[in-house]
Computed example of a mutant assay.
Amino acid sequence: MTEAESVEQKHKSSNGNVPPESSVEDVFDHTYKEKEGPKPHRSIVWKNVILMTILHIGALYGLLLVPTASTSTLLWSFVCFLISALGITAGAHRLWSHRSYKASLPLRIFLGVANSMAFQNDIFEWARDHRVHHKYSETEADPHNAVRGFFFAHIGWLLVRKHPDVIEKGRKLELTDLKADKVVMFQRKYYKLSVLLMCFFVPMSIPWYLWGETLWVAFYVPALLRYTLVLNATWLVNSAAHMWGNRPYDTTINPRENRFVTFSAIGEGYHNYHHTFPYDYATSEFGCKLNLTTCFIDFMCFLGLAKDRKRVSKEMVQARIQRTGEGSYRSG
Rank of each mutant, 00 (worst) to 15 (best):
V184P: 00
A218P: 07
L196E: 11
T176Y: 10
A240V: 13
T234G: 00
V221M: 05
V184H: 04
E213P: 08
P222F: 04
L225E: 07
L175I: 06
E213T: 03
E174V: 08
V237R: 00
F219Y: 13
S239V: 04
L178M: 06
K192S: 12
L224F: 09
W208M: 14
S205P: 00
Q187N: 11
S194K: 06
P222V: 11
W235P: 00
V183T: 13
H242N: 01
R226Y: 01
I206K: 00
A180K: 13
M204D: 07
M198R: 08
M185D: 01
N232I: 08
V183S: 08
Y191R: 10
T176A: 12
D177A: 12
Y191H: 13
P207Q: 05
S205C: 14
P222K: 03
L175C: 02
S205N: 09
P203S: 08
M243N: 03
C199M: 13
F200N: 06
L224E: 03
L196P: 04
C199P: 03
A223E: 03
T228S: 15
L175W: 04
Y227Q: 15
W235H: 11
H242D: 02
P203I: 07
W235Q: 11
P203V: 07
Y190I: 03
V217N: 14
I206F: 10
N232H: 15
V217M: 05
A223S: 15
P207E: 10
H242K: 01
V184W: 07
L193T: 14
N232G: 04
A218D: 09
L236R: 00
L197G: 02
T214R: 00
F219D: 07
Y209I: 15
A180C: 05
V202S: 02
G212E: 06
F186S: 06
P222L: 08
L210V: 13
T234Q: 01
A233E: 01
F186R: 13
V184A: 06
W235E: 05
V202Y: 07
R188P: 01
Y220W: 15
Q187F: 10
P207V: 10
F186H: 05
M198D: 01
V217L: 12
K189R: 15
D181R: 10
C199R: 10
E213F: 04
K192I: 12
M204E: 08
L224G: 02
T214W: 09
T234S: 13
E213S: 05
K182S: 15
P203C: 09
